[in-house]
Simulated assay, not measured.
Amino acid sequence: FGTLLGQFNFQKFMSSVTGSGEKPNSVSSWLQTIGRHLQNHSLYALGFSSELMLTPDDTLLLSLDSYTFGDNKKPRKKAILHHKFPNHNLTVEAVSPGLFVDKSGNYWDVPLSLAIDMASLASDSGASYHLCMHHNTGSPTQFQGDDHQTIHGPPATLLPGFSIKSAFSFKQNFDFWRSKAPKLKLVQPYDLFLSNPHISASGIIGAALTASVGDCSVRSQDNSQESNGFSFQASGVKSALLADLFASVSFTAQHGNYQRLFLDLTRFHARLDFPSGSRFVAGATQVAQNLLNSQRPSLEDIQTICPNASLSLQQQIAGPFLLRVDSGVIVDLDNQDWPIRVHDPVFALEYSMQVLGSAKAVAWYSPKHREFMVELRFFET
């Protein structure tokens, strides 16, 4: 099937009309002014996408997006091939130009990005692996040309070059308590995935290896954000090899079956991420040595062992309506007044549609990025 989507930038149109300073004195003058502004091609965007089922196991997705016809900007083209193997999936992707976002929320255009991705099938527990080959061509530029907003250049992974990334992980789930109380008869839960009260946890531990050749092998100088794992870099041939461990621990508690009209669901989820095992071990070792020597550990060492934390809270308001808040938590020991603060909170209102067992319409807002969006989500846990 194929999809054709058009977009009109109403906010930019109103800004151009009100900012022109024109004051038409008749209806015909108003129409001429509006018509002249409507001729601005940068107000329009056009997108076309098509999904072709080549075989029962192969799907090809093609898309073409043109954002500003009159500004000599190249259209964004993408081709993705999905192939299903018995125990893993293969994805081949080509994008020109590719759009990526860094940790600071800045968007970057890469002239040509090619990727081959192979991953084992997702499972609730057990071992899994992920292998990806990535090649970038051309120098990345900041999207929409807002170069003055960034202090640092583009991430090293977006620079021209070829890289191979692999990861292996093992996941284990733990059920501390799961309700065996019967549900209300003849009353369908608003969401089947949210109808079982429980207290559970899960843990993931794994290892990652990256080998790169080209400009993308240059490591960032910001050591506070980079892994301290095993690394080897040969600057003469622009190549590097990086390896490290990672881990994640999550905890979930839910009360209510989400069947009654009011306050029948309260769900809390917390996750702790340890992106660099070697960095954590080095920091923990230094803290332990200081304590054994009756010395006070430095704030930098304590900061090193602090994981990245994220919290999520869902609360039923009435019927199928839920209020949801997601936020990261940052520990900044250098700030004596506020050592713990929230990071990038997202507020959402969810409406459970009671179709397909689990489907919802979500309207969310991010104060940090000043973004608002309405989405349809299916089978989200």
Rank of each mutant, 00 (worst) to 15 (best):
D344L: 01
S248H: 08
T137Y: 07
G277P: 01
Y351D: 08
V213Q: 12
E371G: 08
P155Y: 00
E22N: 11
R324G: 10
K73P: 15
Y44Q: 10
S104W: 06
E375D: 14
H134P: 11
F1K: 06
F170E: 11
M373L: 07
D337Y: 04
G145W: 09
D124Y: 11
I330F: 11
G328S: 02
Y129F: 07
D147A: 05
R370M: 08
V325W: 00
V95S: 13
I151E: 15
S163Y: 10
D222M: 01
E93W: 06
P111R: 00
L261F: 01
A234Y: 14
I205G: 15
Q315D: 08
N89M: 03
T141G: 13
F170V: 06
D117W: 09
H343P: 15
R271G: 01
K180C: 07
A181C: 01
V329C: 02
Q354D: 12
S276D: 13
T18Q: 15
A363M: 07
T285Q: 14
I317A: 03
L60I: 13
S294Y: 10
Y44T: 13
S120L: 04
L60N: 10
G2Q: 07
D117A: 01
S224M: 03
H152Y: 09
F230N: 00
G357T: 09
A207R: 14
L192M: 10
T266V: 11
Q315A: 02
D102A: 04
G328E: 07
P345A: 00
P24M: 01
M14C: 05
R178D: 13
I340E: 10
F174K: 11
P97N: 00
D215V: 03
A119I: 06
L376M: 02
D65T: 06
N223Y: 09
S212Q: 09
S202H: 00
F262R: 12
D337M: 04
V187K: 08
S104A: 07
A282P: 14
I116A: 04
E93A: 01
R341I: 05
A234F: 10
T59E: 15
V95D: 15
H343K: 10
F8I: 04
F85C: 06
L38W: 04
A363Y: 13
D344V: 02
L349R: 06
L186E: 13
N40G: 03
D65F: 02
S123D: 14
F162Q: 12
D102T: 07
R76W: 10
F176Q: 09
R377S: 09
S113D: 15
F230L: 00
P320E: 01
S200K: 06
D215L: 03
S220W: 01
N136E: 08
L376C: 00
E371A: 09
L263P: 14
V27I: 09
D124P: 13
Y351I: 08
G328M: 00
R296L: 03
S220H: 07
G70Y: 08
H37K: 10
I164Y: 05
W364H: 13
T266L: 03
G138N: 02
L376S: 00
A361N: 11
H135C: 09
R219Q: 13
L313T: 06
N72M: 05
I317R: 06
V237K: 12
P111K: 00
V249G: 03
G214Y: 06
S298Q: 12
F143Q: 04
H255C: 11
H255E: 12
